[in-house]
């Protein structure tokens, strides 16, 4: 127990820096991945063939391939094609892909559960297709998808630990390097685990709260 406290005091700041990297990797992947997911959500059912095939490709590969494979592909694979990215950039790219693919399916589910009568209502009023999407379909679809998107964000935050394999100095890789230089693996991984939980658990509460707030009109 003393050991745990000592490690926490001595290596806390380093682990905390790692946590900040994990969080920024999560936020960046969400910031790029969610808008892309919205585009793919429409893409997979689009009439335009090129758009549809591209969307299906990105969604299926993004969901089909493990995040770890995508990470390694971006970091170790792309240099073979003369594209060299920094570890952070390649991790960000890989997790953005994963986010876009998963969120596309979640958002598509949300959008499809908007009652068709409301779409008809807006057409009958003479509103354009774009306005119907913008004011009726997307706000409600996102609202329906939001709880599961927030749940996915928590999983993504935990998945950023995979980025240690491509040398991103995030929480897991900091813990690992502290462990390998001090052999204090047990306390350091306990602390790392607690730090992940300290973010994940309140985030889960937040998603429950958001769900309640957003269904006030029902």
């Amino acid at each position: 127990m003393n050991n745990l406290v000592d490690v926490a005091i001595q290596y806390g700041p380093t682990l905390f820096d790692g946590l900040k990297v994990s969080l920024s990797l999560t936020l960046l992947s969400l910031a790029f991945g969610l808008p892309l997911g919205l585009v793919f959500a429409f893409g997979v059912t689009a009439h335009n063939r090129t758009f549809r095939y591209l969307s299906v490709f990105f969604v299926e590969v993004g969901r089909g391939a493990p995040a770890l494979v995508l990470l390694q592909l971006m970091y170790y694979g792309l240099p073979n094609a003369d594209i060299t990215l920094s570890s952070m950039a390649s991790a960000c790219l890989a997790l953005t892909w994963t986010t876009a693919a998963y969120s596309a399916e979640l958002i598509r589910g949300g959008i499809q559960s908007v009652p068709p009568g409301e779409v008809e209502g807006s057409h009958a009023l003479g509103m354009s297709y774009r306005d119907c999407l913008r004011f009726v379909v997307i706000p409600q679809g996102l609202r329906i998808a939001l709880p599961s998107l927030m749940g996915f964000a928590v999983l993504l935050f935990q998945a950023t630990s995979l980025a240690y394999s491509v040398a991103v100095p995030e929480l897991m890789s900091q813990a690992y390097s502290i462990g390998s230089s001090t052999f204090q693996y047990l306390p350091v991984f306990i602390i790392a685990g607690l730090l992940y939980a300290a973010i994940s658990i309140p985030a889960t509460w937040l998603s429950v709260y958001a769900e309640r707030m957003l269904s006030r009109h029902l």
């Binding site: 409301e118 209502g121 807006s122 009958a124 003479g126 354009s128 004011f135 009109h217």
Partner: peptide, 20 residues
């Protein structure tokens, strides 16, 4: 089509209001 729809107001069996 938009002009035609603008000239006709429609009321549905299930109202089709926007619930949000």
């Amino acid at each position: 089509l938009a002009a035609l729809r603008r000239s006709a107001g429609m009321v549905f069996q299930h109202f089709n209001l926007f619930p949000h």
